[in-house]
Design a protein around this nucleic acid. Structure first.
Lengths: 138, 138
DNA sequence: GTGATTGCAAATCTTTTGCACTAAA
DNA sequence: TTTAGTGCAAAAGATTTGCAATCAC
């Protein structure tokens, strides 16, 4: 796919969720939604966007990650205290967490089967079930 | 159970995991391991121990929570960025997370049945499977 | 005594916020 | 124009750390 087409697609993606396609959002969305699933934290993405010669402030990276999350374009994952990761894969799936190095890896939803779930407390409904398979060195 | 007996038990519990029964650890362990399962964060526990007339610094509360976790007396739960909770229930179980107020509640392990798990990557073994059932208002 | 533990205050790190400036519609 | 979005620097939290004083053994 050529650059012009990707650029147009990113703009459409932003408009589709009601976000103005500003230079900063276009740059960040271009890095995030390149067709591959990734887990990024704010610092990573800030570094990448600077390296791509599109200066965006760290505050804007944070704001944008949350706007994208609210818009359903990203999913926030919290595993280790004091750092949030954002997953570009927003479909139903789970994660391996590597205790040794803190890394994350997707698990397809068909590889984890949860056959029984508790009834949520009265007045509450299940919005999501997160399964984290923690692994360590053998 | 009388106070003297509980005091002795707490000291034994600390010695059993190789931690010196200092005044601070005894006070914190006494609050944590009272027989009921609880989820506490450092600030909560610090407030409680101060209220119980056993002054312990916040730094020591943090250090102690991690020492207890390393010793297998507590389990750390990270759900929302920027705050860790510690669970006094270290047996196999899962959690409800209330998105509305950030609250946590235990789910007995027999209420969640995971019938299929992925094979861990080569050289890795599964150390734990955490299931978080996120619920929101109906 | 001697090595482990603690408290304090400062440092660190991530994330959020207020507000003047800039850009999209 | 008009309103949304951005950048900066400062603030806000949570957690960690260095080091001298204190305590358990």
């Amino acid at each position: 796919m050529n650059n012009e087409k990707r650029y147009t697609q990113v703009i459409e993606k932003l408009r589709a969720v009601g976000l103005r396609p500003t230079r900063q959002r276009i740059a960040l969305a271009g890095l995030l939604f390149d067709g591959t699933d990734k887990h990024v934290c704010a610092e990573d993405l800030h570094r990448d966007v600077i390296n791509a010669d599109s200066p965006v402030s760290l505050a804007t990276v944070y704001n944008t990650l949350h706007q994208f999350t609210d818009a359903g374009l990203l999913r926030e994952i919290v595993i280790s205290a004091g750092r949030s990761y954002f997953d570009t894969n927003v479909s139903d799936h789970h994660h391996f967490y590597f205790e040794t190095d803190g890394g994350l890896e997707d698990i397809n939803s068909d590889e984890v089967v949860v056959t029984q779930l508790p009834t949520p407390p009265k007045g509450q409904k299940i919005s999501r079930v997160d399964v984290v398979v923690r692994v360590s060195e053998d």
